[in-house]
Write a protein that binds this DNA or RNA. Structure first.
Lengths: 102, 102
DNA sequence: TCTTCATATGAATTATATTTCATATGTATT
DNA sequence: AATACATATGAAATATAATTCATATGAAGA
């Protein structure tokens, strides 16, 4: 696999807003407007973030009337987050204290 | 798990140089100077990158004489890269064509 | 302890990503 | 086809991260 594939993928995840969205979509699929209200994220900001996530097939979208319902591609993301949970538990005493990237 | 833990971890991986280093260390452990020569990366640049990776326990280090030997914590990283391989194969036709983050 | 080789660090510069805001597009209803 | 609501997009402004370079620290042998 090409390094640039990894790089693009990780860059997509390396953003607090996009992680927040992923966490929310992990619970339930949702429309842009409802996500916007529930997470208190400005609409266009949210759209930009969702477009990035969709670009790597981290999320997918379906139309429902005027609304677009975004949902998580759980196949990849959920196991990946679980790997990090385990990593943090095993190697970082559960809490990430990496000063360098804080 | 806190979102910031994921964020820090992914940020660490969201960098072409650090991915290159990870790929190299996946093959064999190595000292800074040898990595520098083999990958043609300027020494201080490499040290900065390695410090970041070590910060999240993605790599570890041992002393050998004057040299510091860095090695990959394969437990987390290798399965993670494999997840992305599978993702790219399944959802992106093997090649990441995500224009947005190119 | 002095010198040399190996690596790390800090801070300024440069590069890259995110936010914001105005506006465009798209979908359904009348 | 005109309107309203929902979402997307582009580009400028802003924020954040990477690179560079000078220098500091650290280990080992003479």
């Amino acid at each position: 696999m090409k390094n640039s594939t990894y790089h693009v993928f990780f860059r997509n995840l390396a953003n607090p807003l996009r992680i927040k969205i992923i966490s929310a979509l992990r619970e339930k699929e949702n429309s842009v407007s409802k996500l916007s209200r529930e997470l208190k994220i400005e609409q266009s900001k949210l759209s930009h973030a969702l477009t990035s996530l969709k670009c790597c097939n981290i999320v997918k979208v379906k139309q429902r009337g005027k609304q677009r319902i975004y949902f998580l591609n759980k196949d990849t993301i959920v196991p990946m987050l679980k790997l990090i949970d385990k990593h943090a538990k095993t190697f970082c005493k559960g809490i990430c204290s990496c000063e360098r990237l804080k």
